[in-house]
Design a binder for these strands. Structure first.
Lengths: 345, 345
DNA sequence: TTGTACGCGTTATCAC
DNA sequence: GTGATAACGCGTACAA
């Protein structure tokens, strides 16, 4: 049986023999409704396939059940996006769907002039109940400021950055780097090297700390000779690895602060005639597509984009946004072919 | 100067000394407003930073200025999506922004049970002014039927499929395949082979036709000995190429109906000791990421995802949806290293 | 050319 | 527990 496509709250009220207010109560799970009344209303809702009109709802309650997700999208101005965009969308959509919210996506080009103003207008126009600002936009003061000035609640998602002024979500870089180190230890490695990345990023320090945490927990003494500095590039990883492999006691495992440098380490190993992972284990960080393309595939740390954005979105919907608080979402280890048991030697 | 965040149409009317109807006319670019009145109203709008309330608008006009984009998203259940998802979003957003519409994205897993019902509910709930159904969902009758039954206007986006019942957008496979053939001819090739793909796809026939069109226009006689059949896999491309290269008059260029098979051709060339493109030019179709990863990078046909979805979205917004009509959006050649001048021999 | 008055489908404030 | 009724901000016949 087909019904008119637009049953309204009035139709439901009539059919159930109650007032619209009661229907509203049932729909919104409010208290103060006798259970038999509730049943009657629910039956009427089902019979009429009633769905509340979103616009009317938003208008009356002055809060659009809507979350805006703002992110930088390389696809808009460059190479294909590496998949993190869809991951973030996935997380946001999941949180929205659970709560009956809609999601408005806003891909941006962080280099575009007037972006702040554009975002401000979008937010004032859409009047969402919240805005999720993803990295790297979340690290740009002018962007955050523009959205802050609209008065709409927002959450930033980034890597280990902490703000005193607003609630933010980040990944637990330190924690998971420690886990990676412990994973290498569990494979029998004792001489584990670490290659730092560009020190401008806060995440770098976190990862280095995690590495040290892991060593400590495993009872392995930290030695600075097993630490090199890179600049996040493949070349710098290769250079660092060459140095490490020239040591009298070369490491049996190298943990690099990002995947590019880890790829560089593998290149260095090949030049030295070392087999990965038999002679040398290599671990990276970020799980970029390169990690699957090298051979053997790189053991690395997966960034929890979907989970972070989901957490941010849920926080907005549930209005749990303690200013200055940082919610940490743990990443996870992606153990692939580039790591294995330490050589017997 | 900060204003109350919610100037309404009444505030504007008061400030400008006119009625709300006049403001409405100005906002919606309707005629019958004296230009000085219009100026006064526009100044008031600017002064108050007035933005029409979307919800009120939708409610009053009973049309949500909203487009739903429905697509299959491999990222939701598998490997990272190949970038076509963000391309489609880009196209849809562009069309929406121009018209002041919002976009609701709906990634799906085409294998999920109850997907049709889920989509039906979404559409009935959101009441958008239109739905864009992207391939491969657009080729699934149960999906299209579910959306059709909601009564909401929709457009399917796919490859060369034509429906008699609704408006659809597709890429002009035949046309662009002809162009690719002509491009090879312009490089001096006269013996150009073609490898067909899986004949189940309509696009395959279109591409083959385009190949023949190109030969004809160039005045080259079509010979079936230069045509092989593959199954879209790398292996089948390799096998076909081996056969072609064994001919007495082997082709100097091979055009494969997809990138995977083209990659297979390159593999065959390598086995034969042939250099690409010096000894053999290779062209593919689809511009998947593999096309950039092989060496030399593959000359191929870029699918106009963004443009197709943009066209579909615009059609919905402008309500230009002649049933049974097919709008063809041309792809474009991506000429890279795998093709070059024909060998002198 | 401009304005009045009502309706869109909810939520929310009170009474009952 | 329940129900009239007034907002919410805008579009739009219909008047003027």
């Amino acid at each position: 049986m087909r019904h008119s496509l637009k049953a309204t709250i009035n139709d439901v009220a009539n059919l159930a023999g109650v007032s619209i207010k009661t229907v509203s109560r049932v729909v919104n799970n409010e208290p103060n409704v006798r259970s038999d009344t509730r049943d009657r209303v629910e039956k009427a809702i089902a019979d009429l396939s009633y769905r509340p009109n979103v616009s009317a709802r938003n208008l009356a309650s002055d809060r659009a059940r809507l979350i805006v997700l703002v992110y930088d999208d390389p696809a808009a101005y460059e190479a294909p996006s590496s998949g993190y965009v869809t991951k973030m969308q996935e997380g946001a959509l999941l949180a929205c769907k659970d709560a009956g919210y809609e999601l408005l996506i806003q891909p941006c080009n962080y280099r575009e002039r007037g972006l702040s103003e554009q975002l401000r207008r979008l937010v004032e126009y859409a009047r969402p109940s919240g805005v999720v600002i993803a990295a790297p936009l979340s690290n740009m003061p002018r962007i955050v400021k523009a959205i802050d000035e609209t008065g709409v609640p927002f959450v930033t998602v980034s890597r280990g950055q902490k703000s005193r002024r607003h609630f933010s979500v980040a990944t637990n870089d330190r924690e998971i780097s420690k886990e990676m180190t412990l994973h290498l230890v569990s494979e029998g490695h004792k001489r584990i090297a670490f290659i730092c990345g560009n020190p401008e990023h806060a995440a770098v320090a976190n990862r280095f700390d995690g590495y040290k945490d892991g060593l400590e927990e495993a009872g392995i003494k930290f030695t600075s000779k097993y630490v090199c500095e890179g600049d996040n590039s493949i070349g710098s990883g290769e250079k660092a690895a060459m140095k490490l492999l020239s040591l009298a006691d070369p490491p049996t495992a190298v943990f690099a602060a990002n995947d590019d440098m880890a790829a560089g380490v593998m290149r260095a190993a090949a030049k030295r005639g070392l087999t990965v992972p038999d002679d040398l284990s290599v671990a990276g960080c970020d799980d970029i597509s390169l990690a699957r393309q090298v051979y053997p595939a790189l053991t690395t740390i997966r960034q929890p984009f979907a989970e972070m954005v989901q957490a941010a979105t849920s926080a907005l919907i549930e209005k749990k946004l303690p200013p200055g608080q940082l919610e940490l979402v743990p990443g996870s280890l992606s153990v692939r072919g580039s790591t294995g048991p330490a050589p017997k030697s």
